[in-house]
Write a protein that binds this DNA or RNA. Structure first.
Lengths: 216, 216
DNA sequence: TCGTGTTAGTTATAGGTTCTAACGCAGGTT
DNA sequence: AACCTGCGTTAGAACCTATAACTAACACGA
């Protein structure tokens, strides 16, 4: 699915088993959440006994880290694909929602409650900045009507290291952040079921926020 | 803290122990998150052996449910207190942020990743609608410049059961929802550490969103 | 004051988890 | 063909939730 399956048959077998483990892990996460992920249960379903799994993942955390990495990778891929197809901010917003609804637990794995001790490995930041780059592209393309920069925008202009070398104007920096935070706001409340009792349609709220953030 | 401690000394002792259990549970959650909450560890720290704790809480879920209820109660109380002190939307936003930063894990317990099987008990919805009522009051007070209702606003007007009997105009319904979702968006990203690498000040973004949602 | 029922605590136990250790064995490597 | 690397096994330690059975202390009515 990702690596070109190198050299030795040993390695090929190894990555194949790793992939199968991850597949079952995703199924388990989708139904019961990440906290209920059991290495034992996965091993048994694959057909091998408990500890064998530790040949492939050092521990539970490493498996989850791998899943998080894959989730980020998946989001970055769909984002980039849509962007290369010429998507504007509104379409990116829709892509984000589609990706989230496709597998809510995957969304929560990335954007949900973090476990206090855990720190993401360095290479996930590379993926997140890839996502951010796509977003900044789209925000820069969405030409804003020239207005005097807000205090927030000047602050962002002074702290723009997170945008790497991207030549986005301050208004685009602000727009990217609000895109992210507003859409995540609606999405996470919806996926967490906080709109459940209420009878309105969350997609309408999402659409309104997406429109507001795409520049009227 | 809540109940007036009724009748018998047995009951008083009982609620006292329950309260101590919850106190230790909160400490544990604050440092290691809700998923790492261990009844055994709590019992030992209190000075009694494991299973004794089951006299006070039927199981782990019931304890966590109780904590969630308390968290909701706490948020509703601070919200209502500020509202009764004449706070407008901007001050409510600040109160929300203060409450969240005070104990991030408490915030996540309420607004974080839900466990798939879990369903909140009926009486928490009463608390949430109390919070919503305060919010709707403030949104109605923030007199919007009369504009033609957006599609979202007419949709909300047609599905306003979640607002109970509150006489908020459609624009206030929309404002309450965006208040909630936008502020939650910034807050949850910040608390989850997604802004960590970036060097800008999240409180500035929050302030900007709070201002935008309070009606310029 | 003396039973009697309730309740809080105990230990023992069952079944679950992650993860380590020690071992056999087969397949790939040389 | 012989080696040896590495996969999978079982055993077991140290946790966890939760139940069962039992004891001790307390509350209260006769």
């Amino acid at each position: 699915m990702s690596k070109p399956d190198a050299s030795t048959p040993r390695e090929r077998y190894r990555t194949q088993v790793r992939e199968e483990i991850k597949k079952h892990a995703w199924e388990q996460i989708a139904t019961a959440g990440a906290s209920a992920l059991s290495l034992n249960a996965i091993a048994k379903r694959i057909g091998m006994s408990g500890p064998a799994l530790y040949r492939y993942f050092a521990n539970r955390d490493e498996l989850i880290t791998e899943l998080i990495r894959d989730a980020y990778r998946s989001l970055a891929d769909t984002f980039r694909a849509r962007a290369e197809a010429g998507a504007d901010l509104g379409e990116l917003a829709q892509a984000l929602r589609g990706w989230a609804l496709e597998d809510p637990q995957r969304y929560f794995l990335v954007y949900g409650t973090p476990v206090p001790g855990y720190h993401a490995p360095a290479d996930t930041t590379r993926i997140t900045s890839e996502i951010m780059a796509v977003l900044l592209d789209a925000c820069t393309a969405a030409q804003p009507p020239a207005t005097p920069p807000s205090p927030l925008e000047t602050h962002l202009e002074e702290h723009r290291v997170w945008a790497r070398q991207h030549p986005a104007p301050p208004s685009a920096l602000r727009r990217a952040l609000t895109f992210w935070s507003r859409l995540h706001g609606v999405l996470s409340l919806e996926l967490a079921g906080h709109f459940d009792g209420m009878e309105f349609d969350p997609s309408r709220l999402y659409a309104a926020e997406a429109e507001a953030v795409s520049g009227r």
